[in-house]
C-alpha cells in the first residue's frame, strides 16, 4: 500500500460535514465509483447481484448500487471501497463490458434529514426536477448552479449529489447556502 496520504475532494484529510436544522450534509469520501457500458452484443450483466436499473432509476443491494447514466450506461457505486481498485473488481463481474474508473472524478455529498422533512424543500432550491416523480430510487443528471451533477434519491429522508471533484468546493457552498437558508426560514 502506498505511503502517500490522500485528501478529500474538499481538500481536507477528514470528509466535510455540516448540519443545518434538520439537514445533515456529509462528504462521502469512501464511495468507490466506476462506469459501466454495454458493448455491442453483450448481455446486460448483473454485477454483484445488481439488476441494472432503467433510465432515471437507482438501485442498491448489499453495499453496492447502480444508477442509470444514459442508454446502456450505468454508474456503479460501492460504499467504503474508494481505496480499492473497484473498477478492476467490476470488470471481473461484468465481462464484455466497458468499465472506467470514476472514483476520483467525483465528490459525493450525502444529504440526510434527521427530522424527516426539508429534503424536498432543499432540492427544490437546487435542481429543476419534478420532485413528485423523484421518490426513493430516483436518480438523474441535471444542472445545479451551473454544475453538472447526479442527484440520487437514496430514500425518503436521504439524497445524494455527485458533482465534479474539481468543483467540490463550489458544490458544497451551493448545498450549504441552500440548507442554511431553509434553516433561516424555519427560525
Amino acid at each position: 500500500m502506498t505511503d502517500l496520504r490522500p485528501i478529500t475532494a474538499l481538500g481536507t484529510v477528514t470528509p466535510g460535514y455540516a448540519s443545518f436544522g434538520a439537514l445533515d450534509l456529509r462528504e462521502n469520501a469512501g464511495l468507490a465509483l466506476a462506469s459501466l457500458a454495454l458493448r455491442r452484443g453483450t448481455l446486460e450483466p448483473t454485477p454483484f447481484g445488481l439488476t441494472l436499473p432503467e433510465p432515471g432509476r437507482w438501485v442498491a443491494w448489499q453495499g453496492v448500487a447502480a444508477l442509470c447514466t444514459g442508454p446502456d450506461q450505468w454508474m456503479i457505486e460501492a460504499e467504503g471501497r474508494a481505496e480499492l481498485d473497484f473498477s478492476a473488481e467490476l470488470k471481473q463481474v461484468a465481462p464484455g463490458c466497458s468499465v472506467t474508473e470514476q472514483t476520483d472524478g467525483w465528490v459525493a455529498i450525502e444529504i440526510v434529514s434527521r427530522a424527516g422533512t426539508g429534503l424536498e424543500a432543499l432540492l427544490s432550491k437546487l435542481v429543476n426536477i419534478d420532485l413528485a416523480n423523484f421518490g426513493p430510487g430516483g436518480a438523474t443528471r441535471t444542472g445545479l448552479e451551473h454544475m453538472s451533477c447526479f442527484v440520487i434519491r437514496r430514500g425518503d429522508v436521504h439524497a445524494a449529489v455527485l458533482g465534479a471533484r474539481s468543483s467540490a468546493g463550489s458544490l458544497w457552498h451551493a448545498l450549504e447556502t441552500a440548507a442554511k437558508r431553509l434553516e433561516e426560514k424555519v427560525a
Binding site: 458493448r39 452484443g41 466497458s98 472506467t100 472524478g105
Partner: peptide, 10 residues
C-alpha cells in the same frame, strides 16, 4: 462498437 467516458477529473 465504442463507449466513451470523461475521466478528466479522476
Amino acid at each position: 462498437d465504442v463507449q466513451i467516458f470523461s475521466t478528466t477529473e479522476a
